[in-house]
Simulated scan of single mutants.
Amino acid sequence: MSADAVNDCYIALELSQRTWLVGFLLPGSEKVQTMAIAGGDADALLGAISRIEAKIEGDVWSEGLTCRMRVCFEAGYDGFWLARFLLDHGIDTTILDPSSFLVSRRGRRAKTDRIDVEAMAFTLKAYLLGDKSVCRPVRLPTPEEEDAKRLARERTQLKKERTRHVNRIRALLILHGVRSVPGLWGGRWRDALSNIRTGDGRELGRFLLRELCRQFERLDVVHAQLKTLEKERIEACSTEGSINSGQKIRILKQLSGIGEVGAAHLVAEVFHRTFRNRKHLASYLGLAPSPYASGEVSRDQARRETNRRASCLSNLRGVGSNTSHKAI
Score class of each variant (00 low, 15 high):
residue 99 S to M: 08
residue 290 S to E: 10
residue 270 V to A: 05
residue 266 L to S: 04
residue 258 I to T: 02
residue 43 D to L: 10
residue 151 L to W: 06
residue 9 C to Y: 11
residue 174 I to S: 12
residue 227 K to C: 11
residue 258 I to F: 07
residue 312 C to Y: 14
residue 243 I to L: 05
residue 241 G to A: 14
residue 193 L to Q: 00
residue 101 F to A: 15
residue 209 L to S: 00
residue 141 P to K: 05
residue 120 M to F: 14
residue 306 T to E: 05
residue 194 S to A: 12
residue 277 N to V: 06
residue 167 N to P: 10
residue 255 L to M: 11
residue 74 E to I: 04
residue 95 I to S: 04
residue 276 R to H: 05
residue 17 Q to E: 11
residue 129 L to T: 12
residue 287 L to M: 02
residue 242 S to D: 04
residue 172 L to E: 03
residue 202 R to Y: 00
residue 218 R to I: 00
residue 79 G to K: 12
residue 205 G to N: 01
residue 69 M to A: 06
residue 45 L to S: 00
residue 153 R to N: 02
residue 292 Y to L: 08
residue 79 G to E: 03
residue 315 N to K: 08
residue 139 R to Q: 12
residue 242 S to W: 14
residue 63 E to G: 11
residue 284 Y to R: 11
residue 235 E to Y: 11
residue 182 P to V: 01
residue 14 E to D: 09
residue 315 N to P: 01
residue 160 K to T: 08
residue 289 P to R: 15
residue 185 W to M: 13
residue 57 E to Y: 05
residue 158 L to N: 13
residue 326 K to N: 09
residue 284 Y to I: 02
residue 315 N to Y: 08
residue 261 V to Q: 06
residue 37 I to K: 05
residue 258 I to P: 06
residue 106 R to K: 02
residue 33 Q to E: 13
residue 149 K to C: 02
residue 64 G to M: 10
residue 117 V to T: 15
residue 194 S to M: 11
residue 4 D to S: 03
residue 90 G to V: 10
residue 100 S to M: 01
residue 314 S to G: 12
residue 314 S to E: 07
residue 150 R to E: 01
residue 218 R to A: 09
residue 301 Q to H: 11
residue 178 V to T: 02
residue 136 R to L: 07
residue 94 T to L: 13
residue 289 P to L: 15
residue 283 S to R: 09
residue 215 Q to A: 01
residue 293 A to P: 00
residue 13 L to N: 01
residue 42 A to F: 15
residue 226 L to D: 01
residue 283 S to N: 00
residue 283 S to K: 05
residue 189 W to A: 06
residue 300 D to N: 08
residue 195 N to S: 07
residue 62 S to E: 10
residue 239 T to G: 12
residue 46 L to I: 11
residue 199 G to Y: 01
residue 185 W to R: 15
residue 145 E to I: 09
residue 218 R to T: 04
residue 214 R to G: 01
residue 246 G to A: 05
residue 216 F to G: 00
residue 68 R to F: 13
residue 142 T to D: 08
residue 26 L to F: 05
residue 234 I to N: 07
residue 240 E to F: 14
residue 40 G to D: 12
residue 95 I to H: 00
residue 123 T to G: 12
residue 151 L to K: 10
residue 227 K to Y: 03
residue 110 A to T: 13
residue 148 A to M: 07
residue 25 L to P: 15
residue 262 G to D: 12
residue 44 A to M: 10
residue 139 R to S: 06
residue 236 A to M: 03
residue 215 Q to K: 01
residue 231 K to T: 05
residue 28 G to P: 14
residue 19 T to E: 14
residue 120 M to P: 12
residue 306 T to D: 03
residue 277 N to P: 03
residue 120 M to W: 13
residue 214 R to P: 08
